[in-house]
Design a protein around this nucleic acid. Structure first.
Ligand SMILES: [Zn+2]
Ligand SMILES: [Zn+2]
Length: 341
DNA sequence: ATAGCCTTGAAT
DNA sequence: ATTCAAGGCTAT
């Protein structure tokens, strides 16, 4: 059945984004030597889709019905069974959630960056945390975007070297004992729980380690019933796995030393054609080959997952333009991520 | 699904 | 022998 796609499959196998379960086991250090583990076709998790995103902030004009190379945007319809979502019991309106952010002054509004009308929020949706994590962005004249993301991982490394530092990223409200060198990296950068060691590249708690593990192992695709900016702390981390995983990625949790950009659902057609799993783990570095694949097949999924992408000054959507965009967005980040591979 | 605990295998 | 992170196991 899949034999017809051997060509594609083989080419895919050379890509770098695969989730490997390369028998490889534990390994010291936060940086695992690049084990070239290709793709793993498994995907156990069902529920390939997730379109039920809340109304995205109208920062840009709503995209037209996108269709790439005649590939109709069918994603809109597939909106049925998702993974079990915590019953909207408390589907807290975004405002409430942001209310929780005790001390995050004007962060939440920076969720999406607009560069020359290119919205990059689709990747770092809810980049508020990323921003607070030290993300800096610079836009050059040519529209080239450069990032100097200070992931928590890097911060932790720095702190370690200094054997000094501040109480994680969560300011202790008012308590800032100058001599508290013990309160240091005791807090999980994702949820604030107590760290239990290095897990997937940085100091995290045991639960977030397990959560990250389950997510990447099963390639789970979550959806957020709110605005993809839910506050994650020890007590609420279970409420929105999407935002939790998003935060995991933002702070720089890595698999096999390689950063993960997202876990995206792949349309049935695409997974069938390329012989890939229904859910795809997008890892750095991204090869241009993968970017092509992304631009031609998975892009619409990205849209359905993260909202929309603004191609205002791109005019009509074409494969080439998509490739351009993808290469300038994703690969840029990939290059940055490669710094601490 | 979550999270605490355990086993494993590699590195030192 | 010891340390440690990845992954397995399993009671909630
Ligand atoms: Zn945590
Ligand atoms: Zn959320």
């Amino acid at each position: 059945m899949i034999s017809a796609m051997d060509q594609h499959a083989s080419s895919l196998a050379q890509l770098n984004f695969g989730l490997g379960s390369p028998a490889g086991h534990g390994n010291g250090g936060g940086a695992v030597p690049g084990t070239g583990s290709p793709v793993v076709e498994n995907g156990g998790a069902g529920a390939p889709n997730s379109a039920g995103i809340g109304p995205p902030p109208p920062l840009y004009e709503p995209p037209p019905l996108y269709s790439v190379n005649g590939m109709a945007a069918q994603q809109h319809h597939q909106q049925s069974a998702q993974q079990q979502q915590p019953p909207p019991q408390q589907a807290p309106p975004p405002q409430q959630q942001q209310h929780h952010q005790s001390q995050t002054p004007p962060a939440h509004n920076m969720m999406s960056y607009n560069f020359n009308n290119i919205d990059t929020s689709y990747l770092f949706a809810g980049a508020g945390a990323a921003n607070s994590a030290g993300m800096e962005v610079a836009v050059s004249s040519g529209g080239v975007i450069s990032y100097s993301p200070q992931s928590i991982g890097q911060q932790q490394q720095q702190q370690q070297q200094q054997h000094h530092g501040i109480c994680s990223n969560q300011a202790p409200t008012t308590a800032d004992l100058p001599d508290t060198k013990e309160c240091i990296e005791e807090l999980c950068p994702v949820c604030g729980d107590k760290v239990s060691g290095y897990h997937y590249g940085l100091l995290t708690c045991e639960s977030c380690k397990g959560f990250f593990k389950r997510t990447v192992q099963n390639k789970k695709v979550y959806t957020c019933v709110a605005e993809r900016s839910c506050h994650i702390d020890k007590t609420q981390r279970k409420r929105c796995p999407f935002c939790r995983f998003q935060k995991c990625l933002e702070v720089g949790m890595k698999l096999e030393g390689k950063r993960i950009f997202a876990c995206v659902p792949v349309s049935k057609a695409c997974s069938s054609i390329h012989g890939i799993s229904p859910n795809l783990l997008v890892q750095a570095p991204l090869s241009s080959e993968f970017c092509n694949l992304l631009s031609t097949h998975i892009w619409t999924v990205f849209q359905s997952l993260y909202g929309r992408i603004c191609f205002a000054h791109f005019g009509r959507l074409t494969t080439k333009k998509l490739s351009f965009c993808v290469n300038n967005e994703l690969e840029n980040r990939a290059a940055v991520a490669a710094d601490f591979n």
